[in-house]
């Protein structure tokens, strides 16, 4: 699998990048780490005429605490560097855990945070070579008018597997989106659309430039966990991030977000309500897990069966909530 021809532009500033994006909107993609985009391009899923390389732009490679105590992270920050960053570990350990769970070290050494946030949705019928896909008619995601994963569906059901997405939503993060001459800030939750073929609100001339994680007056704790077939390089079968604020067994606010089960991360509002009403205890965890199961709505059999996904969500909710009441276990490492 080889890459087809394209033009390559390496801007020296973010402004130059945004100008290029505007001039070639619709025929341009930004390249940061390249670990998702280049794979899709090799499979013939995308064929932009212009690549704007933003990986080394200094404006996007920063992590800092702003005066209010919030954490600002540039979209171009490398995942391995973030995984080892002491500021991130102190301010948002759940995001750090999510980052550590992504792919392999090789890929994290190349990939960026912005790239994972924007990670293309995945499907059995989409992430295939051109030759493989040629044996079926095009689907919603490849320009056709049907979904192979869910027959008769009116939309694409490809799965959003971005591990950082549930963590960012649980943390209440804001996504900073820029285009030439303007900038907007969107809650991470609203950045995603429940539509596999167009899964973010990014316009063709827009670029995700950074993330803001509110840590200023937050008192709560956040936990992330992911279940996948293999412990190594793998996409999640399901992941969860939970943010709880309160003291002891009472719970002022709760946010639970499930990733990798649908085309967008799923915010479990009723489940969170159970915790706010009942506090955090063995009984309420059980009730919350059952609430999560019924709150999921319609699920697609894709990568795993819909029934399995429901079971998984229940387990994810239980496990993540238990991590709030358990003392953090120090990871056992067997020394040679």
């Amino acid at each position: 699998m080889r890459l087809l021809r394209f033009e390559h532009f390496k801007p020296s500033s973010l402004e130059e990048a945004l100008t290029a994006m505007q001039e070639s909107a619709g025929n341009v993609r930004v390249l940061a780490g390249g670990t998702d985009l280049l794979v899709n391009m090799k499979c013939g899923l995308e064929q932009p005429g212009l690549i704007v390389s933003i990986g080394s732009l200094p404006e996007l490679n920063t992590i800092a605490e702003d005066p209010s105590g919030d954490l600002r992270i540039g979209a171009g920050m490398n995942l391995s560097e973030l995984a080892e960053n002491s500021l991130l570990a102190a301010k948002a350990p759940a995001l750090r855990d999510a980052i550590k769970s992504i792919a392999s070290q090789h890929i994290r050494n190349m990939a960026t945070l912005g790239g994972n946030v924007c990670l293309d949705t995945r499907c059995w019928y989409y992430n295939q070579s051109k030759l493989w896909r040629a044996s079926r008619p095009a689907c919603y995601k490849t320009g056709g008018d049907q979904c192979h994963a869910t027959r008769g569906s009116e939309r694409c059901h490809a799965i959003n597997s971005a591990d950082t997405a549930p963590a960012l939503i649980a943390l209440g993060a804001q996504v900073v989106v820029q285009k030439k001459g303007s900038q907007r800030q969107i809650p991470a939750e609203d950045f995603y659309r429940d539509h596999g073929a167009r899964h973010t609100v990014l316009e063709p001339d827009e670029l995700l430039s950074g993330l803001v994680i509110p840590c200023g007056n937050e008192t709560g704790k956040t936990h992330f966990l992911k279940i996948s077939r293999r412990q190594g390089i793998d996409f999640a079968l399901g992941s969860i991030a939970a943010h709880l604020a309160g003291n002891g067994s009472t719970c002022h606010s709760a946010r639970l977000v499930i990733g990798s089960l649908g085309s967008a991360p799923i915010v479990l509002e009723k489940t969170a309500q159970v915790l706010v009403e009942a506090g955090l205890s063995q009984e309420s965890i059980q009730a919350a897990a059952e609430a999560a199961r019924s709150e999921l709505g319609v699920l697609t059999t894709l990568f795993s069966s819909a029934g399995y996904k429901r079971d998984l969500a229940q387990v994810l909710v239980k496990r993540v909530l238990h991590s709030f009441i358990k003392k953090p276990t120090t990871q056992k490492r067997t020394r040679r």
Binding site: M1, L31, T35, V39, S80, H106, I107, N109
Partner: peptide, 27 residues
């Protein structure tokens, strides 16, 4: 595999293991 899953194209760039199949030479 040429799509970043197998690791046989690993090279070390600036001290880090990276995949030569997913890096543009110009980068």
């Amino acid at each position: 595999c040429a799509v970043g899953t197998c690791g046989v194209c690993t090279v070390i760039i600036d001290g880090k293991a990276m995949l030569a199949c997913l890096l543009l030479a110009v980068e």
